[in-house]
Every structure is written in C-alpha cells, then in structure tokens.
Design a protein around this nucleic acid. Structure first.
Length: 422
RNA sequence: GUGGGUGUAGCUCAGUGGUAGAGCACUGGAUUGUGGCUCCGGGAGUCGCGGGUUCAAUUCCCGUCACUCACCCCA
C-alpha cells in the first residue's frame, strides 16, 4: 500500500474510540466542575507567535515545528502546543475587560516533528487549561489538586507529582548570574549544545542529559536558594495550600521545562507504572506571568497545564466494550428486508440505537452477527409474525424469547434495557 | 539527528535454498425459521521494495523504504 498516514501520525479507529471518549469526558467533567469553559483555536498560527512565546532557543522552535510559507506570503506554523494560542486569543479579544479571571480549557491535536517513539507522535492530542488574572499561589495549588483528582478518577494510580519554582524576572536575573559564575569555569567541559545554551539561556543547561553536563549541573547552585522574598513567599504559599489539601507532591529543584515562558510555579506529573516507555511525562504546566504582556496584552498573571492524551490512555486501565447498538432487527425471509428498514426507523424514533441486518442470509448467521456485536436484543421479523402483527423479541443475554404485538415492541425493549442497567 | 530490533493472510506469528502454514478474525454449513460451545468447509498473501549470489531465493548477501524501541526532547 503506497498511500499511508504520514510518519508519526495515526488513525484512531472505532474500537479504540470509547477509551478516548472516556478520557475526554472525564477531563471535561472535572475542569467544568472548577468553572473552566471550552475554547477552540486555529491549528495554524503565525510562526512568530510561537517563536516569541515558547522561546527562540527551545528545541520546539529550533527544530520541531511544522513551518511553511502560505503561497509565498506569511510564515505559518502548525501549533506545537496550546498555550500560545490561548494567550493570543485572550489578548486579541481583550477578554480581561470582560471578567476579572478567565478560565479556559481546550482539547485538540498538536504537531511536533520529532522522531516518533512509544507515546510520542508527530500529531498528538493535548487537553489543557489556562487561568488568566489570578496571581496565585492558591489557584496554583487548586490547579495541581485538580489534576491529581483527575488522574486518580481515570484509574491511574502510579504517579508522582513534582513541583518547583523558578521565580520571576528578578530571581531569574540573580540566578542567571550565579549560574553563569558557576558554569563559566566548566565551559570547556560542557557539550556543544550547552556552550551555546550558556549564552542563550543558561537555565537549560540544567536540563541537559549528556552525562558530563548532568554531573556539572548536579553541583550547580539551586534556584530555590536564590528566590526573592516575594517569590519565596509565593512558593511557600503553594506548598502550604497543597499540604492543607492533602495533595501529594515532591519538590524537585531541577525541574525545568522546555518552554521559556514559565515563571514561578512549575509542575509535572510522571507516570511511574510500566508500559509507558521513556515518555512518562503525563502532564506538565506552570505559571507564565509575563506572557500576556509580552504578546501585547495588559500585565496579566496566568497559569496552565497540558496533558498528553495518548500517554494518559496508555496509563489508563482497559474498560469493557459496550455494544454500539441496542437492537438488531433480523428479517427471517429476504423478502422482509424492506419491512425491516421501516421497523428500524420506528424503533429509532423512540430513542433506541438500532441496526437492521439487511444483508439477507440465514437466520442463524444473522443471529450470530447480533451475538458477535454484543447486542442485548434481537428482533426477529418473519412471515408468520407479519401475518399476526407481532415480532419476536429475543433477549440474547438471558436467552429468552417473547412474541409481542408490534406496537408494543419498543416499550418492551426499553423496559428490558432499563432492567439491565439496575 | 544517533543507535538497536522487526518486516510472511485483516491481526498475532511459525517456517523452509526447490514459488508457503497455524491460531484468531471473516464467511458458509451441520434437514425445513433461532446466537454463544463443538465439528466440517471457504475466501484471502507479487513472503516490504530493488539488486546480487545460485540451476533455483520468502530463505543467503547488499542496498533501500517502512514500522518499532531506546537516546534526545517533551505531553
């Protein structure tokens, strides 16, 4: 087959979709309970939006974006994440003028041109939230507590919650100096990337996985000891609130995200169960207090997170497969297939999910099919039944069968289904 | 971008230097209009693609592409 889905992108077929629905509705239900409302943004944005928000020196911007020129005019990019678009929309529509605090959520595909691996796709799905207008730290704790609740409601037990603070601009400046003072003597020992990072964004050296760089980074001064009094108070407030809520977490001073826009609170949830492979970051987020202003909006604090749906799916337990229809209508004689389509329409009008088996074939094979798709009820229509104005209702689960007047069939089926649910 | 693994039926895989098999799935039947179990039958594969060695390659060699895992990065 020569035409196939492009590398790193995949089809989600019906057999898989119920798990997706389960995840998405759990997410919606959870965040709506906290007052978040859904927003939808374009998948294509001006390239400059991501360069300015995510940061020029990040891996995402440097080598992972799907960027193209639109008919020789503008440079456009397939969104690699959702926060930049959220902020752009927030600013564009002057949303701050309408409400003091804005809480949005989104679900959709993101695009990054990385080498595919287990749990990592080039088109992948993220669900995320953003809160604009609340400086925290209480809302920070609430958001973290919310995701912990969500994860657990999905049946994912083996997780670890990491939090850190990288402070605001003042802290960052102070720390940057201290870090550079520490790194400079080691400059020659660092990898080429890190030497470049030292000039562009020294914080990212801490994130390097090259063994020698990691050794050097391990002895670097911690940002947590360089927090300004205000940043310190903010981080303390977050931890106190988490403790009050009973939310489990661990402070990890080396937690640094790959996006430059973060300030102060940073958090990440790692899946610790097997089966996730090396891509065990289930969700990540943090505060980005400068971004709204830097994209031309008013000075507005903000916090958000995004979770990777494919990874959550891998960590979730399998559910049972629910039948996709309630009734299968079977025509005992091929001549009754037209009648079966009419009967199907009648039943659907009462709210039932109905499939008429219109292929013909033997009664046996049609019943076999009904059984295969795990349907509860088979309705059999034959010449005898038509003469008598009745249908046969077969309960495939309890192996019972009743002859009922056609007019009463829908009512009987509804009763049967309601009985099962109890 | 770097390394490893794997490409044979729709799926999961076996197999052999002489042009292929199983299980599952699909489908038909086991006396006339009744499912799951069992039994019998059926369709389906240019053995990823290209080249080389050979009388002969799905099998050996090389290349290539695809998929996959790890590094990396992150969600």
């Amino acid at each position: 087959m020569s035409l196939r889905a492009v590398k790193g992108m995949r089809d989600i077929l019906p057999d898989e979709i119920s798990k997706w629905h389960r995840l998405e509705s759990a997410f919606r239900q959870r965040v709506e309970a906290y007052g978040f409302r859904e927003a939808r943004f374009p998948i294509v944005e001006p390239t400059a939006l991501f360069v300015r928000s995510i940061g020029e020196t990040t891996d995402i911007v440097e080598k992972e974006m799907y960027t193209f020129t639109d008919r020789g005019e503008k440079s456009l990019t397939l969104r690699p994440e959702g926060t930049a678009s959220s902020v752009r929309a927030f600013v564009q529509h002057s949303v701050q003028a309408r409400e003091p605090v804005t809480k949005w959520y989104y679900i959709g595909p993101m695009y990054r041109r990385e080498r595919p691996a287990k749990g990592r796709y080039r088109q992948f799905y993220q669900a995320g939230i953003e809160v604009f207008g609340d400086p925290g730290p209480f809302v920070d704790a609430e958001v973290i507590d919310m995701v912990v609740g969500l994860i657990s409601s999905l049946g994912i037990a083996e997780v670890e919650v990491l939090v850190n603070s990288i402070g605001g601009p003042q802290t960052r400046e102070k720390y940057r100096d201290a870090l550079l003072a520490y790194l400079t003597p080691h400059r020659a020992e660092l990898c080429a990337d890190c030497q470049r990072r030292m000039d562009a964004n020294p914080l990212r050296v801490l994130d390097c996985k090259v063994p020698r760089c990691a050794e050097i980074a391990a002895d670097a001064p911690s940002i947590l000891t360089h927090l300004t009094d205000e940043d310190r108070a903010h981080f303390d407030g977050l931890q106190e609130t988490l403790t009050l809520l009973g939310t489990p977490y661990r402070v990890d001073g080396s937690l640094v995200r790959g996006l430059d826009y973060y300030t102060r609170t940073l958090f990440e949830v790692l899946g610790t169960g097997g089966g996730l492979g090396a891509q065990n970051a289930l969700l990540g987020g943090g505060r980005y207090d400068q971004m709204v202003e830097s994209l031309g909006g008013p000075d507005t604090p903000a916090i958000g997170f995004a979770m990777g749906l494919e990874r959550l799916l891998m960590a979730m337990p399998e559910g049972e497969v629910a039948p996709h229809v309630d009734v299968v209508i079977i025509a005992a004689q091929p001549g009754l297939r037209a009648e079966a389509t009419l009967l199907g329409r009648e039943l659907r009008e009462t709210g039932l999910r109905v499939e008429s088996d219109l292929r013909g074939g033997s009664l046996k094979s049609q019943l076999r099919r009904a059984d295969k798709i795990n349907t509860r009820v088979a309705m059999i229509l034959g010449e005898t039944e038509v003469e008598e104005g009745v249908v046969q209702l077969k309960d495939l689960q309890n192996k019972t069968q009743d002859k009922v007047p056609r007019a009463e069939a829908a009512k009987r089926i509804h009763a049967l289904l309601a009985d099962t649910k109890r």
